[in-house]
Amino acid sequence: MPLRAARVGRVGVIGHPVAKTAVVAKAVTPGPAPVAKTAVVAAAVTPGRRRRRI
């Protein structure tokens, strides 16, 4: 790997092997909106819409 010398031999900041995130992969796929229920999700994050059960 032709990385700069400053990157070699240092302790990293990520710390562990990263697992693939399917959500992100879908979000960057070109074409129609990745989520069929976009409007429903938008409503879910609108203030005051949902009731909490605790």
Binding site: R7, R10, I14, P17, K20
Partner: peptide, 17 residues
């Protein structure tokens, strides 16, 4: 800034196909 280390490259690449 060169924050990422060579070790990070290995960890990040683990997610790649």
């Amino acid at each position: 800034a060169e924050l990422l280390a060579e070790e990070d490259v290995v960890h990040l690449a683990a997610a790649m196909e």
